[in-house]
């Protein structure tokens, strides 16, 4: 299964994102993104199955967690 990545503003927000997604039944993993993915150097984020990406984005927006899709 292909993965979609959501870059968060911090590692703490990556874990918050994971918790939010877990509450909504979406499995995700906290990962470190490298500079080639973010163009801003090292960052953190979460990865989700591509089929869950749309629901995940909605859940993160509803929870007020800022993210970008690298």
């Amino acid at each position: 299964m292909k993965k979609d990545l959501f870059a968060t503003s911090s590692l703490t927000y990556a874990y918050k994102a994971r918790d939010v997604l877990s509450y909504t039944g979406i499995k995700s993993n906290v990962i470190r993104l490298d500079g080639s993915e973010t163009r801003k150097g090292c960052r953190f984020g979460v990865s989700v199955d591509q089929r869950d990406a749309r629901d995940a984005a909605k859940a993160l927006r509803n929870a007020g967690i800022p993210f970008t899709e690298p």
Partner: peptide, 16 residues
Amino acid sequence: SGADPYTAYMPDRLPE
């Protein structure tokens, strides 16, 4: 701070 290495200043977000 473990992230955003190119910025000259500390992030303006918590907790970093």
